[in-house]
Amino acid sequence: MKTPCEFWAEEVMPNLRANVARILYSKGLTQAKIAEHLGITQAMVSKYLTGKYKKLGGELGREIEKVSEEVAGLILYGARKEDVVRFLNRKFFEMFKSGVLCKGYLEYVGSTDESLCGEIFTEEPSRTQILEELSLALNELLRDEKFLELIPEIRSNFAYSLPNPKEKNDVAAIPGRITVVKGKVYALPPEFGASEHMAEVLIGLSEIFPEIRSVLNIRYDEKISDALRKAGFKVGTVEKSERSEEETVKLILDEFKKKGVLDAIIDKGGFGIEPCVYIFGKNPVEVVEKVKKLESLL
């Protein structure tokens, strides 16, 4: 019997590489450059771009398309090959655990024993993995000159939680926040327990929409409000002028309860509270993608 790793290598990876090649080509990369990034020949890139490969369908095919977009984003951000490999390894385990990849594997080997994948893949993401993913996304923001204009007076923080966080130390964030030093964006490496406010937001969200595990705050003004609308983001609003930090967290969570999964929440500020926008995502890379989309519309 073939193993899950063989299924991933023989059936899934060709689809993923083909999707990534198509995305990178649409962004202007040459076939030679795409081949270099993917570790394959230029002839294989050409084959992928002309659709000459066995395509995955159904739920698994759709999920691989999403992962391909994330991988292409990492490559375009300038991520190291080692970072992309780590990201794909994590996705491999996540997708088997979720059942999406397991169904395809069971069909591949002709089995109906759905407990097989659950017995093999039981690990939760480690704290090291969480820090690595957050660091990767943070580094992209540090390289992004446009992000400098999005940092509020209170500075930005960027957080990413373990699945089902229960306390502040289950949420990684930036010590001292993302700030500006000599006209450039600066931040210390992320740590667990570095932001009580962001931790409270993500802990509360985990009880409503556990898939939302990352958040970043940026400045707010009418131009950014306009860009949120043009981007087609689903947005909530907090408007109460006098409130404590605990009330702010409750108001953010109330917006999710009323409106469902949101891309962003505008906090219009109040007495002693600077207006800002919270950008949410399943992971830090998704949050940065949303920030990039906003920047393109400003």
Score class of each variant (00 low, 15 high):
residue 146 K to F: 12
residue 115 S to N: 12
residue 184 K to D: 04
residue 82 E to Y: 07
residue 185 V to M: 10
residue 48 Y to D: 11
residue 57 G to C: 07
residue 188 L to K: 15
residue 204 G to L: 02
residue 50 T to Q: 14
residue 133 E to I: 07
residue 119 E to G: 09
residue 283 N to G: 15
residue 129 Q to I: 03
residue 130 I to S: 04
residue 165 P to S: 14
residue 84 V to E: 03
residue 252 I to V: 13
residue 297 L to P: 02
residue 18 A to L: 04
residue 72 A to S: 15
residue 55 K to C: 06
residue 109 V to Q: 10
residue 191 E to T: 13
residue 6 E to Q: 12
residue 236 G to V: 03
residue 147 F to W: 07
residue 75 I to Y: 08
residue 116 L to Q: 02
residue 155 R to D: 14
residue 125 P to Q: 11
residue 118 G to H: 04
residue 191 E to I: 12
residue 103 K to F: 13
residue 220 Y to N: 14
residue 230 K to R: 14
residue 217 N to L: 12
residue 14 P to Q: 06
residue 13 M to D: 01
residue 170 D to K: 11
residue 62 R to L: 07
residue 34 I to M: 05
residue 92 F to L: 07
residue 296 S to R: 12
residue 27 K to N: 09
residue 21 A to T: 03
residue 184 K to I: 03
residue 121 F to H: 04
residue 35 A to M: 13
residue 142 L to A: 08
residue 168 K to I: 15
residue 154 I to Q: 00
residue 297 L to C: 02
residue 269 G to H: 01
residue 43 A to G: 08
residue 151 I to A: 03
residue 19 N to S: 09
residue 16 L to F: 09
residue 154 I to E: 02
residue 116 L to A: 07
residue 253 L to S: 02
residue 61 G to Y: 06
residue 296 S to H: 06
residue 270 G to R: 02
residue 264 A to Y: 06
residue 110 G to H: 01
residue 274 E to D: 13
residue 207 E to F: 09
residue 230 K to C: 04
residue 69 E to N: 10
residue 221 D to L: 02
residue 2 K to W: 12
residue 252 I to C: 00
residue 172 A to T: 08
residue 145 E to V: 13
